[in-house]
Amino acid sequence: MPTAARLVAALLFAALGWYVSEMVKALLPPEENVGWFSEANTIISFFIGWVFVGKRAGDTYAGALGYGITAALLMVLWCAFLQAFYEMIEKSLRKQYDDPVEAVVAIFEIMIERGPVLINPFVVGTLLFGAMIIGLIVEWVGRRFA
């Protein structure tokens, strides 16, 4: 059911996803082809805000900090997984894998390979601080417009 809290959560997490994606793109090597990186991560973040955070609004402010941080972790995991999945598909179309199991394992290898870029203190700090602030805003909206 659409609520003001879900809409606010979705829009704010989409904005956070876009901003952090742009930060990560700046840390990638210049020869890296990023394609629709920011756009895809924005869409994923929008749905995490709508489905996960928005429906939890109306709990407590301490809970809001918790589900904000959890949403940030979900954003990182889903975005990293889907970006690695896309890269695996590209490589599999070029026949770089011998069998399907090798391709599935490659998804997680790609995620681990790209992990150090995400551990940058500015990226982590922005993501966690932004998610906690958004959690508090969503909680306020959930109480105010419920």
Rank of each mutant, 00 (worst) to 15 (best):
E102D: 12
F52M: 10
A4S: 08
F37W: 12
S92G: 09
A131P: 07
N120F: 08
G17L: 01
A14L: 07
E31G: 06
F52Q: 07
D99K: 03
A80T: 14
W78K: 07
I133C: 04
R56H: 13
G17C: 03
M132D: 08
G115L: 15
A103P: 14
T70M: 11
F47N: 09
W50K: 01
E139Q: 12
P2A: 10
I134E: 00
W18Y: 14
I133Y: 09
K25D: 07
I43N: 12
F108S: 11
A10F: 00
G142L: 09
A57Y: 02
V34T: 13
L127R: 02
V105I: 07
A131M: 07
T3C: 05
W18R: 03
A14H: 01
G125Y: 09
F85A: 13
A14V: 01
E32Q: 10
E113F: 12
I112S: 13
N33M: 09
A10H: 01
A5V: 03
V24M: 09
V105K: 09
G115P: 04
I89Y: 11
V24Y: 04
D59P: 03
L16D: 00
A26P: 02
F46H: 13
A10V: 00
G49S: 02
V8H: 00
V101M: 05
T126I: 05
A9Q: 02
Y86K: 14
L65P: 04
L16H: 01
W78P: 06
L28M: 13
A131W: 02
I43F: 15
L28G: 04
L16N: 00
A146D: 07
L7E: 00
G17D: 01
L16T: 01
W36Q: 10
K95T: 11
V53R: 03
P30N: 07
M23S: 10
V105D: 15
A4R: 06
E90A: 15
P30C: 07
L11I: 00
F129A: 13
V8Q: 01
A15E: 00
I89G: 09
Y67P: 06
I134T: 01
E31R: 12
